[in-house]
């Protein structure tokens, strides 16, 4: 693996997906994401944003085109899928914490099982991650005892505990009460400073303006526009982008 700044972490070419019911959700999507880049994906509901980023860790399959993650082709080889999932973390809209495990065990489960690391070692790392996202005191509680914002921060820490090279966010703040959005975005802002690659589906314009290297607009199963945030929000090329921005700004 090289670490040149142009190293491609995600390379999607002409990705097409039909759902089993025949719905054509992705219609030849192209996207390249470089190492350490933060890409924000926007677009109207139903445009295929979730479907698209979920193909990156094989939660969704696709029928045509190709996706390479850190140089590995995402095909049907199950071992490669497992290898890729270890390197790609995901944060969901609904948090999806494991309710039967304590916060600490939510973090410790995967590194011990999947990477075979010792529990004591992972526990120390998990506690320092929880400290970083500001909820070290809650380590022994169960997810159901935390607020939504706290749960989402645990979910981010859980993904980080696997030390992924790519982190995907699918509308991480959409299920949160407004007063909790900040605490989660703050954690994501911190993360963006590091050399982890991030793809973030979100409608938080301010976050995109401040943090993203590039903003992507998806509509009707395709990428319509890709631009640095300043240009994307002030001076978009496409009519479709302008219409979308009119609706959310």
């Amino acid at each position: 693996m090289t670490s040149s700044p142009t190293h491609l972490m995600i390379e999607a070419r002409g990705v097409q997906k039909w759902y089993p019911n025949g719905y054509h959700a992705l219609r030849g999507v192209d996207l390249s994401v470089h190492r350490g880049e933060v890409v924000v994906v926007m677009g109207p509901s139903g445009s295929g944003k979730s479907t698209f980023i979920r193909t990156f860790n094989a939660l969704e399959d696709f029928q045509e085109g190709s996706i390479r993650i850190d140089g590995i082709n995402l095909g049907n080889d199950l071992r490669q899928i497992d290898a890729i999932r270890r390197e790609v973390g995901m944060v969901f809209q609904q948090f999806n914490l494991f309710p039967h495990l304590t916060v600490l065990d939510n973090l410790v489960l995967a590194p011990t099982l999947v990477r075979g690391r010792s529990r004591t070692e992972v526990q120390a790392q998990a506690l320092s991650l929880l400290d970083r996202v500001g909820i070290k005191e809650q380590a022994q509680k169960f997810p159901g005892q935390l607020s939504g914002g706290q749960q989402q921060r645990v979910a981010i820490a859980r993904a980080l505990c696997m030390e992924p090279r790519i982190l995907l966010f699918d509308e991480p703040t959409s299920a949160l009460d407004p007063e909790m959005v900040r605490e989660v975005l703050d954690v994501m802002r911190q993360l963006a400073q590091e050399d982890i690659t991030m793809v973030v589906v979100t409608h938080e314009v301010k976050f995109a303006e401040q943090v993203a290297h590039r903003v992507v607009l998806m509509a009707e199963g395709n990428v319509v526009e890709e631009a640095p945030p300043a240009q994307f929000f002030k001076n978009p090329k496409h009519e479709r982008t302008r219409r979308f921005l009119d609706q959310i700004l």
């Binding site: 497992d82 999932r85 995901m90 489960l109 995967a110 999947v114």
Partner: peptide, 10 residues
Amino acid sequence: QMEAARSLGL
């Protein structure tokens, strides 16, 4: 739950 576990590599 299944998706979260699978995305963690389990």
